[in-house]
Simulated assay, not measured.
Amino acid sequence: MNIYQRAKNLLLAPAKEWQSIDEEDVNSSHVLTYLLVLALIPAVAGFIGMGFIGLNVFGIHSGSIGWGFRHAISSYLGIVGGAYISAFVIDFLADKFQATSSFNVAFKVVAYSYTPMCVAGVFYLIPSLSFLVPLAGLYGLYILYTGMKPMLKVPEDKMMGYFIVCLLSIIVVSMVVGAIFGAIFINSVYF
């Protein structure tokens, strides 16, 4: 399956695509490649948008090549690092909800659920539209939800509780990773 087709199928028919993913015998390096390629979309778009176009707020223009570069690195590492840490947490919690405990499977579920947010990263090209990227992340939560049952084999009675705990942990991981990379790259004066 090529990256474009996988992303398209996940965005348009996630439940059907999860069935296909569940039947595949793909190792995590293929999934990592998928995530690394998709994470380039918000990183490159952010570099162009923040580095060359910038924002014009209250008549003050912000944006520079350095700012765009820091945004790109922070975005890229945040997506990849956040996916790994979230997959670790989801795998750790699997036993408590009688789900399949496998880091590779948890990583597939998390990495593929990042698809809408990564694809919507194209909106970083126009910084005033960047608010749409987190909104696309909400659709990613739906993709996560539809993927948990077939991939992690969550019992029906445990599904909602496991999803809520996974959702909260992904939010916390995203906030912590974002704060760390933001402090390192975005707020860096000497970069």
Rank of each mutant, 00 (worst) to 15 (best):
N56A: 07
K16S: 13
M151T: 06
L144Q: 05
L36F: 11
S113P: 03
P42T: 07
N9F: 04
P42E: 06
S28K: 14
D157E: 14
P127A: 09
G137P: 12
I3T: 10
V154W: 01
I180T: 06
E156D: 06
V122G: 02
S169Y: 03
L55P: 00
V133K: 10
V110L: 01
K153G: 01
G46A: 10
L32H: 02
A99V: 13
M151W: 00
G137F: 10
F92G: 03
P127W: 11
M160T: 15
V26Y: 05
I164W: 02
V109D: 00
T146F: 03
E24N: 02
F191G: 11
G68M: 07
E17S: 05
K96S: 14
S174W: 06
N187G: 15
F69V: 08
P14M: 07
W67C: 05
I186P: 08
M151D: 03
L144M: 09
N27L: 02
V177W: 07
G182E: 11
S128C: 05
Y84G: 06
S74C: 12
S75G: 09
G51T: 03
S75C: 12
S64N: 05
K158E: 10
W67F: 15
D22Y: 06
L11P: 12
M151S: 14
N104Y: 02
Q98S: 14
G68E: 01
Y190W: 15
L12I: 13
M148P: 00
V110A: 02
H71T: 12
Q5G: 09
P155S: 01
I170W: 00
G68W: 00
M151E: 06
F103W: 10
Y162E: 04
F52A: 13
P127C: 09
F163A: 11
C166E: 00
A106C: 08
I79K: 07
I171K: 04
L77P: 06
K16V: 08
A15N: 11
L144H: 05
V119P: 01
L32S: 05
A111W: 07
G140A: 05
I164E: 00
A43D: 09
S188E: 14
S128A: 13
I65A: 08
I186E: 09
Y114M: 15
Y145M: 07
F123N: 04
M50C: 07
L141Q: 11
L35W: 06
F52W: 15
F163W: 08
I186C: 05
P150K: 00
Y84E: 00
L40E: 09
S130Y: 08
F185R: 12
Y76H: 08
G147Q: 10
K149N: 05
S86L: 03
Y145Q: 02
H71S: 12
A83C: 04
L32G: 00
P14H: 04
M160R: 09
Y84P: 00
D25A: 13
Q98Y: 13
V57I: 15
S75Y: 08
S113A: 14
C166S: 15
P14K: 09
I41H: 09
F52E: 08
H61F: 14
I53W: 04
V122I: 13
I171G: 02
S74F: 12
V31G: 05
I170V: 11
F97L: 08
F131K: 09
